[in-house]
Design a protein around this nucleic acid. Sequence first.
DNA 1: GAGGTAGGTTCCCTGAAGGAACTCGATGCG
DNA 2: CGCATCGAGTTCCTTCAGGGAACCTACCTC
Lengths: 167, 167
Amino acid sequence: MACSIARTWDVIGEPWSPLILRNVYVGIRRFDQLQASLGISRKVLAERLRWLVEAEVLQRREYASRPARYEYTLTQKGMELCDLLLVMVRWGDRWTAGEAGPPVLYRHHACGEISHVEPHCSACGGPMSATDIDVLPGPGAAPGPGSDAGGQIAVVGDGPTSATAAS
Amino acid sequence: MACSIARTWDVIGEPWSPLILRNVYVGIRRFDQLQASLGISRKVLAERLRWLVEAEVLQRREYASRPARYEYTLTQKGMELCDLLLVMVRWGDRWTAGEAGPPVLYRHHACGEISHVEPHCSACGGPMSATDIDVLPGPGAAPGPGSDAGGQIAVVGDGPTSATAAS
DNA sequence: GAGGTAGGTTCCCTGAAGGAACTCGATGCG
DNA sequence: CGCATCGAGTTCCTTCAGGGAACCTACCTC
């Protein structure tokens, strides 16, 4: 499907993938550690890890030979997926954390402050949210009309702008 | 689980949810339109919509009575989930779009430029990525030790900083 | 040489997804 | 008046992916 959401979903859409990534990110990198910390079945964990390695999100590294022992680390591609996780965390903190407050906090190295991520525009640097944009067909859009209505984005005028203005 | 990723995943982790949200976002708001555009089974679509409404991500609005006809629109909570979708799109464009280029483009209202989202720090406004932060336990962290290793984030020193520095 | 540890496989079984057909109320059409 | 149609779902059946638990294979330690 010519849709970057669906393609991203192909990589991390399976139930456990984001939690596996999070745990690798925070330093839980070995099979048994991951299995124990997540409570995931060993079978499914093995499948997911194989898949994430194949997708080049994780890499499998031998950290001890004889006996061969492996650990999983993030690639660049995987590290950028963690940015996505940070945005998920932000949404979860805002809408589902409840009165207890967020379970974890993030300190930004550059400024030393406890903060969170905010989407900004790569062009002007200002805040950028789904209500602030027009959606236009791009070069990689679905080829013929009618072949894949789901991959094709609706007309610009019928897009989010008028939609949200109306609601 | 005291983890905002898992909690966010509870809401949109099911296979079709992000694509449903995207379609509602771009203006496909009715049951049959959604079903046709996604190729999803009617049963699953009905379940997902019910769930998303219950989670207050979508709202079911009667746009015609006699016969009663309904459409689904985004709530504020749902609109902010679309920000998450934009980040997913960005990752998909960067890593999976291939030579055809991105299927859709986004124009930022504020500046009029074709651009994409970048995570920035809410405190200092500078770029903020998963490699730039320390992870600290927050007020809503899992209560007792040992009760939920998965919800508890590892020690700070064992976190992403040293991890990525080592790789 | 008994037991432990890391990193998986194999087998079975259940629950969720898909497909197609059916329902229900209203409304247009001849 | 009677029939078809449309939007918005339900219902039933079947198949496939996820979970659990046990097993396997090197190697290392006591």
